[in-house]
């Protein structure tokens, strides 16, 4: 068996994933993520970005293919080992921020640290530091329901970064935001990742978002492609056939 390249922190070879209902997810994607880089996974909606990220993060096991993380074979791990790997090494950001509604903002941010066994005081200090860095420090004692969506998303980013994961998976982190807030959120995310050497795998269908990344790969219909430019659809295609007046 071939060993993975040394400079890649995360490495996948010919990943195949098919959803339980039979719809195709990812078909034969290979990629390598270098340490400390920000990799954008682009492509239109439904091209398998989220599925690829879920396979890489070990949330779902791929049917064929290999996923290596720092010379550890993720594809051969059991569910318990994958859960531990996710907790200790990976961070995950959802498209919409799902925070625990009963906890306030700093408790939400400190929760992954406390789940790893860090003491309450140290977890609180780290959480408040990260919240301050992401411009939500003054909301640290509010409940998530009192915040705006962009602020909640920044809290979710702080929650994912605070345990300083090795790899951070961000699945369209700016999809439900307006453009100004989108730029702000993305800038804080990329700055935080670069300053702390966190590898980021960022799924996005937005070219502006992808421009902030170091490198970009594109997916189309579950396959890795070099360009996603499809031939333009002619304006009147099918209109004459379907028109009742003809």
């Amino acid at each position: 068996m071939e060993a993975p390249p040394d400079n890649d922190v995360l490495w996948a070879r010919s990943l195949h994933f098919c959803h339980p209902d039979g719809s195709p997810g990812v078909a034969g994607v290979s990629l390598g993520v270098r340490e400390g880089e920000i990799l954008a996974v682009g492509g239109p909606r439904g091209s398998g970005k989220t599925t690829l990220l879920r396979c890489l993060a070990g949330l779902v096991p791929a049917q064929h293919g290999e996923v290596w993380f720092n010379s550890t074979a993720v594809h051969r791990m059991g569910p318990v080992d994958r859960e531990r790997l996710r907790r200790d090494r990976f961070g995950w950001i959802d498209p919409a921020p799902v925070l625990v509604p009963e906890l306030n903002v700093w408790e939400n941010t400190a929760l992954p640290l406390m789940l790893r066994g860090v003491g309450r005081r140290r977890a609180k200090v780290a959480a408040l530091e990260w919240l301050e860095r992401l411009d939500v420090g003054d909301k640290a004692r509010r409940r998530p329901v009192e915040l705006r969506q962009a602020e909640r998303q920044r809290v979710a980013i702080a929650r994912a970064i605070a345990p300083s994961p090795t790899v951070l998976f961000a699945d369209e982190p700016t999809a439900p935001l307006h453009r100004a807030e989108r730029a702000h959120v993305l800038r804080t995310l990329t700055t935080a990742a670069r300053s702390h050497g966190i590898t980021v795998v960022l799924a996005t269908h937005d070219a502006e978002t992808a421009a902030l990344a170091d490198r970009r790969i594109s997916l189309l219909d579950g396959r890795r492609v070099n360009t996603v430019h499809l031939p333009p659809v002619s304006e009147a295609e099918g209109r004459a056939e379907c028109s009742l007046s003809v």
Partner: peptide, 16 residues
Amino acid sequence: ADTTEALLRMGAPAAA
């Protein structure tokens, strides 16, 4: 259910 699922995605152990 959705909060629990998000916690699990975050890596919270199901045993906790």
